[in-house]
Every structure is written in C-alpha cells, then in structure tokens.
Amino acid sequence: MDEEYDVIVLGTGLTECILSGIMSVNGKKVLHMDRNPYYGGESSSITPLEELYKRFQLLEGPPESMGRGRDWNVDLIPKFLMANGQLVKMLLYTEVTRYLDFKVVEGSFVYKGGKIYKVPSTETEALASNLMGMFEKRRFRKFLVFVANFDENDPKTFEGVDPQTTSMRDVYRKFDLGQDVIDFTGHALALYRTDDYLDQPCLETVNRIKLYSESLARYGKSPYLYPLYGLGELPQGFARLSAIYGGTYMLNKPVDDIIMENGKVVGVKSEGEVARCKQLICDPSYIPDRVRKAGQVIRIICILSHPIKNTNDANSCQIIIPQNQVNRKSDIYVCMISYAHNVAAQGKYIAIASTTVETTDPEKEVEPALELLEPIDQKFVAISDLYEPIDDGCESQVFCSCSYDATTHFETTCNDIKDIYKRMAGTAFDFENMKRKQNDVFGEAEQ
C-alpha cells in the first residue's frame, strides 16, 4: 500500500465507483478503499435476508415463511433508472452494461384523492384515464405537443414562451391547466419533490418532461429500469471497470487518518501504512468535519406477500404521492420490486416508501404510502441524515459526494458526479471521457 497514487477513493457507493471508473479509464492511477467488507456503502443491496434483520437490530431473524435468505437482495436506497437518463448513458458509454441485466418497471402510478391511478404512457391511455376530465385532456394534450416540439435552440418552437424568464406557473396558465393536472405534471412527469420549481424559469421543467417522455418511448410500460439482483450491482459494475483499467481495490480496510500538508491532501493512513495521493474522493462518512447536515430522509422497507392493490398485479412499480394531495411540502414515493428481479424469495415483494422528513414524527409522514401497502409482513425503518460538503474541495483537493436524496431516480446523483468531475479535472464533464479506450493495455477482449 505504500505507494504513490493520482487519486484515492474512500467508500464504494455508486458515486465513488463511477468516479473511480472514469478516473481509471482516463489513465489515472487509482486506489479504492472501503472500511466495509462489502461494496456499495449507503447504496448497497443487503443479502442474505438475515443480514438485513441484523442491521435493523431485529434479533429474532426472519421467519421460515420468508423463504431462503440467499434469495434476497434488499436495497437500502430505493431508486430506478430513467431509461433515457444520465446513468444509463454512463453505463452505455463505459460498457458496464455487459455486467448487468435490466428489466423495465411495469408501471408508474400517481395518488389522487386517496386512490392510485396509472400515469398514462400512451395517448390512448391518456384519453381513457380517469385522472382528468374530457376538456382537461384536450388542454393537457396541447401542452404535451408543445413540450414535444420544444427545442431550446429554435425560438420558432417557443410559442411566445421565453425559456429563460417565463416561469412554469405562467406556462401552466397559458395552457389553462387545472391544479390536479399541474400536480401530476410537476411531480409524476417532471419528478420534482416540491413546488419550488413553479416560480423558476420553465426551461428545466420542460426538459425534465421531455426526458420522461423519451424514456417512456424506449420501452413503453414506464420510463424506469431496474437491474436484476438489486442496485448493489451498479457500484460493483463500475468497480470492475476501474479494476480492468488498473485500479487497486481494498475492502474491509480501516481508514485511520487523512493526511494533510499546508491545507492540501497528501495521503491516507491505514493500519500503520500511508498511501500518498494528489486528490481524494470520499463519501460524507469519511470526513464528518468537512460536511454539513442538509436534512433527513425516511425510508421504510416493507416486505409483502402480495402485489400492491390497484396496480394490475404489477411485479414492479412506482407510486408518487404528490405533496398537495397530503398537505406536505415534499412528495412521498413508493418503489416496489419483487422475486421477478431476483431480489426476493418466490411470491414475495419489496416495497420501499420514502420521503424528505418535515416533522418530528417521520413515520407518521409516510402513513399515506403504508396504507396502500397493507397487509405488511415486516417493516424496517431507516431515518438517514443527508450531508453535503461545506466547500468545493478545490483548495484541499478533498472531494466529497452528497448523500443520496429522496428522489426515486439517479439524475441528482449523476449531477453530483459531473460536478465533482468538473472540480477535479478543471474541465466540464463530457460523456466521451467515459469511453473505454480501444486496444489499450487494460481493455477487455470482446465477449
């Protein structure tokens, strides 16, 4: 370990593993360490099931009705991949897709007046949907046509809207959309967690709705994908990429100290040895004095023996409960997957309800979601602090990732990755940087 590296990475969460992969592909010498004996950090999948019970201090362990412990891979952080989103792009560019198998999530649902409705995925579904009345549908269709044709580089498509100054509230007004449709559009399509976006320039919202539609167009059922064997497969896929390009991995490796000289990182000390480096990437748990708390998320993992009611017996789905429907500031989400994804025993389902904490009784906040899941065989409640770095790391060369937020997709995580890359490399992130180099010394032969 007593060696000189360009970059040392602490923690094998998804953000850290993707950055480690990119740095290795770009010719950097990388050492990647984790104090845990497993990959994934906060974003790991726990197996066998006995391990999950232990982690949540349920000492009696799983009953026999849960089947074989080894058949379970339970995500600690519930997220899906947008089919046309940035993480899929990263997987394709790096060819990490060859280590993973994905399934399309069967449906996306939205909560309205105590019931759940399928988010329409085709024009026919939209016309048949009970989510809105006849005239509302016509106006909504006009709005969707506007979004589909919108091109930020072609003012002819703006229809009198200025993407940089017109607020989204004004765009909704222009198409005369009612409150329910606005809730549905902002939260189930643009996937905002709160209503803060309404008074911001509309460009980002329009682009988010386009991303949803384009992702949906790829597979038809929903815009989301999920990897077989759980999300823990993602960091491992990128760790393989890093290793192929010469990255060194050490799990179960305690970090005793991060060594600084004149305010700059110069190395990491572990078990009496020092590895030197020019730059350091880590998750917040490794540098508690360089991060601040930015809120909390509650996630309740529920094991069920039945599909969720009114989802047409889907073996995977997402449910969004827009905040307006339950008098909150932030949406509540449910991600459900099952034995069909090799993450649970035969006939079992895993539904994870999550939201940003707003009160001193977080469990009560998630109740509307839990009511949709009854009866629940077993619950595991996790309340996590969200951390963000206190500075950009440019001076110390210590670059810290943000905690995983309450969103049900990876777009915010990818933004964090691109942002850290830019601060480390001094140049904007470009997907081309992730391409495997042809015929290089570490390149794998085609399968």
Rank of each mutant, 00 (worst) to 15 (best):
D283V: 02
N149T: 11
D199G: 08
Y117K: 14
D183N: 05
L370F: 09
T311M: 02
E432L: 07
F140I: 02
L304Y: 07
K118H: 01
A445G: 12
E136Q: 14
D34H: 01
T97N: 00
C302S: 12
M168R: 02
I376L: 05
K112S: 13
G61W: 06
E16R: 02
Y212Q: 00
A243G: 06
T412H: 06
Y117P: 06
L373C: 00
I303V: 12
D176A: 14
A428G: 15
F399S: 02
E4D: 09
P288H: 05
T359M: 04
Q397L: 07
S108Y: 13
S403P: 09
I258T: 03
A344S: 04
N153M: 15
A128I: 13
M90H: 13
Y286D: 02
E60D: 10
K364E: 11
I303A: 13
V334E: 01
Y387D: 10
N439K: 07
G247K: 14
Y387H: 07
S354T: 12
S401L: 03
Q323P: 08
G230R: 03
E136G: 11
E106D: 08
Q279L: 08
K115E: 07
F102S: 04
L100P: 05
M33R: 04
T94G: 04
E125V: 06
G267K: 06
S44Y: 00
S45H: 14
D151C: 06
S270G: 08
E271M: 03
V161A: 07
T194I: 09
A445C: 15
Q57H: 12
D154C: 14
V326E: 10
R276T: 15
F135W: 14
A425E: 14
M82R: 03
C17I: 06
K418P: 03
N433I: 13
R276F: 12
I22N: 00
K89Q: 06
E365K: 02
S108C: 07
V145A: 11
F158C: 13
D34Y: 00
P284T: 00
A83V: 08
L177M: 00
T412I: 11
F184T: 14
S222I: 01
E159D: 08
S222M: 13
F143N: 06
T407H: 15
M336I: 10
A353P: 11
R173H: 14
Y117Q: 01
L58G: 04
K418S: 04
S44L: 05
C282R: 02
I301M: 08
L191F: 05
E363C: 08
S44P: 09
R98D: 00
M33N: 14
I300Q: 01
E363V: 01
F442H: 15
I22T: 09
G230F: 00
N26H: 13
I350T: 08
Q57Y: 06
V105F: 02
R139L: 06
L251F: 07
